[in-house]
Amino acid sequence: MKTATIQLETLTCPSCLQKIEGAMKGLGGVDQDTVKVLFNSSKLKLNYREDEISIGEIEAAINNVGYEVKKSNVKPA
């Protein structure tokens, strides 16, 4: 299990949160209970199982809903 803190581009629109949460919902290997989108600091925090999904795949999913990833910080949970 790893903990990722992903810095996104500045979040401004009210529906960003729902979209990013939605994007994470479809991903296997992401611990859904830990998914937290922080509006003001424009960050996404979550835990994931590294044998099921990679940080690259998580970032790609974020890109697919239209948000840029600035920097990801991965640590063992």
């Binding site: 529906s15 729902q18 979209k19 994007a23 919902k25 809903v65």
Partner: peptide
């Protein structure tokens, strides 16, 4: 429309 499409792909009905 692009944002709307992206939202719908993850089953979110957004403002877009």
């Amino acid at each position: 429309a692009i944002q709307a499409y992206q939202a719908l792909t993850v089953k979110v009905v957004s403002i877009d």
